[in-house]
Amino acid sequence: MTYKLISNGKTLKGETTTEAVDAATAEKVFKQYANDNGVDGEWTYDDATKTFTVTE
């Protein structure tokens, strides 16, 4: 399945996607992506749209 990340960081804003077997796997990928880009904030997940959002 395709999962989307919306980043509302102070230094990184935008969207990216990943293919993953489940939401937990996608979350690990996205949290590593955010960490690699210096984004640390509040996370939410919408199962209906398969979208994670991180806001700093």
Rank of each mutant, 00 (worst) to 15 (best):
Q32D: 07
D47A: 13
E56W: 12
K10F: 12
N8V: 14
E15I: 14
N8M: 13
N37K: 10
T2C: 14
Y33T: 04
M1L: 11
I6L: 08
V39G: 04
V54W: 04
Y45H: 00
I6S: 04
Y3W: 06
F30G: 02
A23E: 06
T53A: 04
F52S: 00
A26P: 00
K4E: 03
V29D: 04
W43L: 03
D22S: 07
K28S: 09
V29L: 12
T44P: 00
D47N: 07
G9F: 13
T53L: 07
G41R: 02
G38T: 03
V21R: 12
S7G: 06
N35C: 14
A26M: 02
T2F: 08
K50E: 02
D22F: 03
E27Q: 10
A26V: 02
W43K: 01
K4C: 08
T44H: 11
Q32A: 12
K50H: 12
T44Q: 09
G14H: 14
A20M: 03
A34R: 02
F30I: 01
A20Y: 02
T25D: 08
L5A: 02
T18K: 04
T53Y: 13
K4G: 03
N37C: 11
D22K: 02
V54E: 01
T2K: 10
K28Q: 10
E27I: 07
D47V: 09
E15K: 07
K28D: 05
L12Y: 12
V54I: 13
E56F: 10
F52W: 06
E27R: 09
A48K: 12
E15S: 10
T17Y: 14
W43C: 01
M1D: 13
T11K: 11
Q32L: 09
E15N: 07
G38P: 01
G41N: 02
A34K: 01
T49M: 06
D46R: 03
T51F: 01
K28V: 09
T51C: 04
K28G: 06
G9I: 14
V39Q: 05
A26Y: 01
M1W: 13
Q32N: 07
M1Q: 14
T51Q: 04
T2R: 10
F52Y: 05
E42Q: 11
D46K: 03
N37H: 14
T18Y: 11
Y45P: 00
G41V: 04
M1A: 12
E42M: 12
T2E: 07
A23M: 11
E15P: 09
D47W: 08
Y45I: 01
Y3F: 13
I6D: 03
D46M: 03
E56H: 08
L12Q: 07
G14S: 12
T16W: 15
V54R: 01
N37P: 01
T44N: 08
G9V: 13
D47C: 07
Y45E: 01
A26H: 00
G14Y: 14
N37E: 06
D47H: 10
A34P: 00
Q32M: 10
G41E: 01
F30H: 00
L5N: 01
D40K: 13
G14L: 15
T51R: 03
T55F: 10
T2W: 12
E15G: 07
A20D: 02
T17I: 10
V21F: 12
V29W: 15
D47S: 12
A34I: 07
N35E: 13
T18V: 14
A48D: 11
T17A: 06
G38D: 07
F30R: 01
T44W: 07
E19W: 15
K50F: 09
A48G: 07
A20P: 01
T18W: 07
A26G: 01
V39R: 03
D40C: 13
T44C: 10
L5C: 05
T25G: 08
A23S: 09
A23N: 05
E27H: 11
T2P: 05
T18N: 03
V39P: 02
T17S: 10
V29C: 09
A26S: 01
G41I: 03
G14N: 11
K13Q: 12
Y33F: 12
A34Y: 06
N8Y: 14
S7N: 05
K13H: 10
K10P: 15
A23F: 12
A48R: 11
T25R: 06
V29F: 15
G38H: 08
K10I: 13
Y3R: 02
W43G: 00
W43Y: 02
I6T: 05
T25W: 07
N8T: 11
V29T: 10
E15R: 07
A23H: 08
T18P: 00
S7T: 15
D22M: 03
N35L: 15
A34C: 14
Y33A: 03
A48T: 11
T2L: 13
S7M: 15
V54H: 03
T16K: 11
E56K: 06
E42R: 09
T25A: 13
M1H: 14
D40Q: 14
I6A: 04
E42V: 14
V39F: 11
D36G: 05
E56V: 11
Q32C: 06
Y3N: 02
F30E: 00
T2V: 13
A24K: 11
Y33V: 06
I6C: 07
T55M: 09
T51D: 00
A23I: 07
K4D: 02
A48F: 10
N8F: 14
K50G: 05
K31S: 03
T17M: 09
D36P: 01
D40Y: 15
D22A: 03
K10R: 13
A23V: 11
E42F: 13
A24F: 09
K4Y: 15
T11W: 13
T55C: 09
T49Q: 06
L12P: 05
T49H: 05
V39Y: 07
F30P: 00
K4Q: 05
N8K: 12
T53H: 07
T18C: 15
T2N: 06
T2Q: 09
G38E: 06
D36H: 08
K28P: 01
W43F: 05
T44R: 08
Q32K: 14
K10E: 08
T53R: 08
A48Y: 10
G41P: 02
K28F: 09
T49V: 05
E27Y: 15
M1C: 14
T16L: 14
A23W: 13
T17V: 09
T49F: 05
V39D: 02
K4A: 05
T51P: 00
T55R: 07
T17P: 02
K50V: 03
Y3I: 03
A48V: 12
V21S: 11
K31L: 07
D46F: 04
K28R: 13
D40I: 14
G14K: 12
F30A: 00
A48C: 09
E15C: 15
A34V: 08
F30D: 00
G41T: 02
T17D: 04
A20G: 03
T55D: 06
V21D: 10
D40H: 14
A24L: 10
D36R: 10
A48L: 13
T17K: 07
T55Y: 10
D22C: 05
V39L: 14
A24I: 10
T44F: 10
V29I: 15
T16N: 06
V39I: 15
E27K: 09
A34E: 01
Y3P: 02
T25H: 12
G38W: 04
V29H: 12
Y3V: 02
V54F: 14
V54T: 02
D46G: 01
M1P: 08
T55V: 09
A26I: 02
V21Y: 12
T49D: 04
T11V: 12
D40T: 14
A48Q: 11
F52G: 00
T55S: 09
K4L: 08
D40P: 04
E15Y: 14
N37I: 11
D46V: 04
K4R: 13
A48H: 09
T44L: 08
V29P: 00
V21C: 13
G9K: 05
V39S: 03
K50L: 09
V21M: 13
D40A: 12
A34G: 03
K28H: 07
V54A: 02
T49P: 00
A48S: 12
T2Y: 08
F52P: 01
T25I: 07
